[in-house]
């Protein structure tokens, strides 16, 4: 299947055109965040305080890269398991987050939030961090530097490959895949 090029920030129109199983190439700015950063963002939302980054229309990539070698934009940078962010993602989706990149299944609450607020969950190839690093052109810490690999980074990506797992219509590639190939 041909890959569909998309650029960030994502609009509702783009989100509604994509279906589970579609391969996309993402270009633009994406933000990174994993366990500890999500907890901090969630705490700020609960307190009604401003977030360190505006997530409206944005994509969060669940990743904690290895340190960059001198002269490199980033180190190895593949996705981490997404279920650990399930407790926090619905809140961020309500705030306008339009996409998440990770690996592994999501909870019903996250999937329902994606349907209600028009958002996408995509998978990048887990364990291909060296290969994926080639589409990351720059990376800069924009919040929570004290978290080290878990800090929030702003990354500039070009043709970052991902596959739509959950679209905004309730479809799920993981379930479709098992249905097709189980014996």
């Amino acid at each position: 299947m041909a890959e569909i090029k998309i650029t960030t920030p994502l609009t509702d129109e783009v989100v509604m055109k994509l279906k589970s199983g579609d391969k996309v190439l993402i270009t633009g700015i994406i933000y990174t965040g994993r366990d500890s950063a999500h907890k901090r963002l969630s705490d700020l939302i609960d307190k009604g305080e401003k977030l360190p980054v505006d997530l409206n229309g944005q994509i969060i990539y669940f990743v904690g890269p290895t340190p960059a070698r001198p002269g490199m934009a980033v180190g190895s940078a593949g996705p981490t398991t997404s279920e650990r962010m399930d407790a926090y993602s619905p809140k961020l989706i309500k705030m306008g987050l339009k996409g998440m990149i990770g690996k592994g299944g999501r909870s019903k609450q996250v999937i329902d939030a994606m349907i209600e607020h028009k958002a996408l969950y995509m998978a990048a190839t887990g364990g291909a961090g060296a290969l994926i690093s080639k589409c990351i052109k720059s990376s800069e810490v924009v919040a929570y530097e004290d978290l080290g690999p878990e800090a929030i980074r702003k990354m500039e990506v070009v043709d970052f490959p991902a596959i739509i797992i959950n679209d905004a219509f309730g479809n799920d590639l993981y379930m479709e895949g098992v249905k097709k190939y189980s014996r």
Binding site: G126, I163, Y174, G177, V178, K180, Y181, S182, R183
Partner: peptide
């Protein structure tokens, strides 16, 4: 035979 496949895509 579970059909999960590489990366769970089937």
């Amino acid at each position: 035979n579970l059909g999960i496949g590489p990366q769970g895509f089937g």
